[in-house]
Lab assay of single mutants.
Amino acid sequence: MGFKLLSKLLVYLTASIMAIASPLAFSVDSSGEYPTVSEIPVGEVRLYQIADGVWSHIATQSFDGAVYPSNGLIVRDGDELLLIDTAWGAKNTAALLAEIEKQIGLPVTRAVSTHFHDDRVGGVDVLRAAGVATYASPSTRRLAEVEGNEIPTHSLEGLSSSGDAVRFGPVELFYPGAAHSTDNLIVYVPSASVLYGGCAIYELSRTSAGNVADADLAEWPTSIERIQQHYPEAQFVIPGHGLPGGLDLLKHTTNVVKAHTNRSVVE
């Protein structure tokens, strides 16, 4: 069995187990497998329904001669939608809004960016022009300005110390501490036991640490421990890039980060 097929099978099995364990909360999309990078042309966006009122959005972007996937989250909030992270750029984010209108038909009224990198804030200006209120932590807003990236308009308070959590509509926002970046936030959907790890969490097929220019490698494993301790009931975990899975993604990420750190020390 090929690795790609095995990865998709694991996603399907995880979703099936969740649907059985929580039949009222989960209505997993039966329309197909989780979209992969090879299936999404740059400039297009796919939506994948995880649970009743919960979707991931998947886009792709060219970077350094390669094409990478990027995940975000959409959560229903009454007759409105909360968006977590842009679709990595203005063109993708405009396509995301169009796809949401086509498939869901509810307005996106608020959006949260989970850290300051372009795959999370690139497209904020498109959201703002569409009347979406954009939010991020003060740290993310400051770092985005320093980096020359787009800056969300509103500040999220109460997320300055490791372990801080605040309720934001249908989700809980959690600051686990520094990891992929010093400002990275985690998003949890309690009604569906869905954990969105953003770039602080890796997919299972990833074996290298990737972009760690703004990471705190020493603190990252401790931050992941905080996530595990705060959300032990999480059933569906979405990484910032690639295929979702279960809580095993947290341990896998820790292993990859520690291996990278150990290699760096040896070198």
Rank of each mutant, 00 (worst) to 15 (best):
S56K: 06
R46D: 05
T134S: 06
L81D: 00
R110I: 07
T253L: 01
L159T: 02
T60S: 14
A98V: 12
L185P: 04
E33H: 09
A133N: 11
T93L: 00
V132K: 04
K8D: 14
S38E: 11
Q61K: 15
T93K: 00
G122P: 05
S205Q: 07
S62H: 08
S7K: 10
A165N: 12
F26I: 13
T207H: 14
L13K: 15
S160L: 12
L247H: 14
S113D: 04
G131N: 11
I17P: 05
V257P: 01
P239R: 02
L10D: 15
A192D: 07
I224H: 03
V112L: 11
S161M: 14
T222I: 11
T86Q: 00
A59Q: 15
G158T: 05
A165H: 11
L204E: 13
H115M: 00
K91T: 15
T253Y: 02
P232D: 07
S208Y: 10
D79K: 09
E203D: 09
F174H: 00
H180C: 00
G53V: 07
T14G: 05
L82K: 00
P23H: 11
G122E: 10
Y68K: 03
S191C: 04
T222G: 12
K251V: 12
V121A: 04
E147C: 08
H117Q: 04
D216S: 10
L156M: 07
V266R: 13
A133P: 14
A66H: 15
C199Y: 06
V75W: 02
S208F: 10
C199I: 00
L247W: 15
T222C: 06
M18V: 15
Y196P: 03
V237M: 02
G2D: 14
T109F: 08
V194W: 00
Q235M: 08
G169K: 02
V194I: 09
P239S: 03
N184A: 01
S205W: 07
P152H: 04
L204A: 12
I151S: 07
P23I: 09
L82S: 01
L10C: 14
V37T: 13
L159E: 01
G32Y: 13
S162G: 14
S205V: 08
A111Y: 07
N149Y: 11
A218G: 12
S264Q: 12
R263P: 13
L83N: 00
V212E: 06
A133Y: 12
I151N: 06
E39K: 12
S205F: 09
I224N: 05
D164H: 09
V124C: 03
V187S: 03
P239Q: 03
L204M: 13
N255A: 12
A179K: 01
Q61D: 05
A178L: 05
Q228D: 06
L81G: 01
V28Y: 11
R46N: 07
A200L: 12
R226F: 04
K4C: 07
G210W: 04
L127S: 00
T182R: 14
E44C: 06
G245W: 02
T253E: 01
E145W: 12
Y175R: 01
Y231R: 02
T182C: 05
S56L: 15
A95E: 09
I100H: 00
A215D: 07
G197W: 03
R167N: 12
M1P: 05
H117D: 00
R110L: 07
A25R: 14
L247I: 15
S161W: 10
V189A: 05
V42K: 08
V121G: 01
S137L: 14
A213F: 10
E233Y: 12
I58Q: 06
T140D: 04
E219A: 12
Y135I: 01
Y202A: 07
L127P: 04
G163V: 05
L250Q: 03
P239W: 01
H117Y: 01
S30E: 12
S137C: 01
G158V: 04
L173S: 00
D119H: 02
L249V: 04
V108R: 01
G163E: 07
L83F: 03
I20E: 15
G197F: 00
S113I: 06
F116A: 08
E225L: 12
F168A: 01
P138D: 09
I201A: 03
G210A: 06
D64M: 12
L173C: 04
A165S: 14
M1H: 05
Y34T: 08
R128Q: 14
E145P: 06
A59D: 05
D64L: 10
Y34I: 08
V257S: 02
Y202Q: 08
F63T: 10
E267G: 07
V37F: 15
A98C: 08
A179E: 04
R263Q: 14
W220F: 05
A51Y: 09
Q229R: 13
V194A: 05
R263K: 15
G131W: 05
V237W: 03
G197T: 05
P23T: 10
A130M: 13
A133I: 13
K258D: 08
S38H: 12
E147P: 05
D85K: 00
D77C: 03
P190W: 07
D214I: 06
K258H: 10
S31W: 11
L185F: 05
D29F: 10
L6K: 15
A19I: 15
T86C: 04
G32P: 11
T222F: 13
A98Q: 13
I50K: 03
T86D: 00
E267Q: 11
V121T: 07
L83I: 10
T109Q: 09
A234H: 02
E101H: 12
L159S: 02
K8M: 14
Y231P: 03
E172F: 03
L6H: 08
V108K: 00
L185Q: 01
A136T: 06
V108H: 01
D64F: 10
I104K: 00
G163C: 01
W220K: 00
T222N: 13
P239I: 00
F174P: 02
E203R: 03
R76I: 07
A259E: 10
Q235G: 08
T60Q: 08
H260C: 09
A209G: 07
T14P: 14
T153K: 10
R46S: 08
D183Q: 02
L81V: 11
A25K: 15
S155D: 14
F174Y: 11
N262G: 12
V108F: 03
D79L: 09
I201G: 03
S70A: 06
L185Y: 02
F174V: 02
G65W: 06
R120C: 05
L243I: 15
F3P: 06
N255K: 13
E219L: 08
I104A: 00
S162P: 15
T207V: 13
V11G: 07
V124G: 05
K102V: 13
K4E: 09
F63S: 09
I17Q: 07
G198C: 06
V166E: 07
C199T: 04
L83V: 08
G53C: 05
C199R: 03
F63L: 15
S155L: 11
S161T: 14
V265Q: 13
H154N: 10
L243F: 13
S139C: 04
V67E: 15
R76E: 10
S205M: 08
S56I: 15
E147S: 14
R263M: 13
N184C: 03
G197L: 03
N184Q: 00
T253D: 01
P69M: 15
G78W: 06
S205R: 07
V121E: 01
V266M: 12
E99T: 14
L127H: 04
E39Q: 11
V37L: 14
A130R: 14
K258P: 05
W220T: 02
A129D: 13
T14I: 09
P170F: 01
A19T: 15
R76A: 10
D118N: 08
H180N: 04
L250N: 02
C199S: 03
V124W: 03
P190Q: 10
H260Q: 13
P23A: 12
T36F: 09
G131V: 05
V54R: 02
G131A: 07
L127K: 03
I17W: 12
Q229W: 10
H260Y: 09
F236L: 09
D164A: 12
V187E: 04
R167S: 11
V257K: 01
L127D: 02
P107S: 10
L106Q: 09
A178C: 04
L156A: 02
S22Q: 13
Q235I: 12
A192G: 10
